[in-house]
Design a protein around this nucleic acid. Structure first.
Lengths: 132, 132
DNA sequence: ATGCACCCTGAAGTGGCTATAGGGTCAATA
DNA sequence: TATTGACCCTATAGCCACTTCAGGGTGCAT
């Protein structure tokens, strides 16, 4: 399988695959006579794992840890649980931050019935003091 | 006012203030005999506006536009409204993405009652196929 | 005179890619 | 056989919004 095929199968850009290789997330595959990368099923599996993890918002650093843990089938999965739980907490934090922020913005936008900047409630909500 | 004072008043790092100056968001202040930046009230106002906008999640590019609009008191505020509304839509998108993602993760974590990686539901939910 | 907190500049690093330049490979077609 | 065009290669720079670092200067108190 060539890099383009792998890219299509995993919905990943070719450059991203090469980037993962450089970062040590994906093992360097063998090369054919023309120096093209040749991928096997194991690469497809590993890249799918990485992409799925990234889609779920894990950082590459977290993915690195998850891969290492996944490789060790006999190890305890408590560490996996810890990473996932910490990630959920982080996501919850983001959601509540964004919700607060959204409400504040909506308030300004809804209130702004004026025509000019001078009376614009949005600008006013950003300014520290009245300009006069 | 020296840069450190301005930093404290606006809860901004000194380096960030210099960065905003380099980026043209904050006008270059005058200097004292020792080449230290000397800030006036207008700088405090402008930096506060920038920080508040950033806190609300606007990009620096959006802040740049908002500042330009805010400077022109007679202009129509419809553009401001457009920027803010587009931003709210963006935030809504992020919130719903994160909520979906959170639910998926929670499902895996709640289901994982096993001890070893081999049976870990979280790892399983990331893996594309069963490893056997 | 010395210490220390603060200030200066310029360059490089962060994450997670994406884009660009400048080339090589390979299979199909004219 | 020559050529086209899709694909591949490497190396480097760019993106955002800063942060960090190296290597120095200033200013005030002790």
């Amino acid at each position: 399988m060539k890099i383009g095929d792998l890219a299509k199968l995993t919905d990943t850009r070719v450059e991203t695959i090469r980037y993962y290789e450089k970062e040590g997330l994906l093992p360097a595959p063998s090369r054919n006579s023309g120096n093209y990368r040749v991928y096997e099923l194991q690469h497809l599996n590993r890249l799918s794992f990485i992409r799925r993890s990234r889609d779920l918002g894990f950082t590459l650093e977290q993915v690195r840890k998850l891969l290492k843990l996944a490789d060790n089938q006999d190890a305890s999965c408590s560490e996996v649980d810890a990473i996932a739980t910490e990630h959920i907490i982080e996501i919850d934090r983001k959601i509540s931050d964004l919700t607060l922020l959204r409400d504040q913005l909506l308030l300004s936008v809804d209130c702004c019935q004026s025509d000019t900047i001078a009376d614009c409630k949005i600008i006013e909500s950003l300014a520290p003091f009245k300009n006069h």
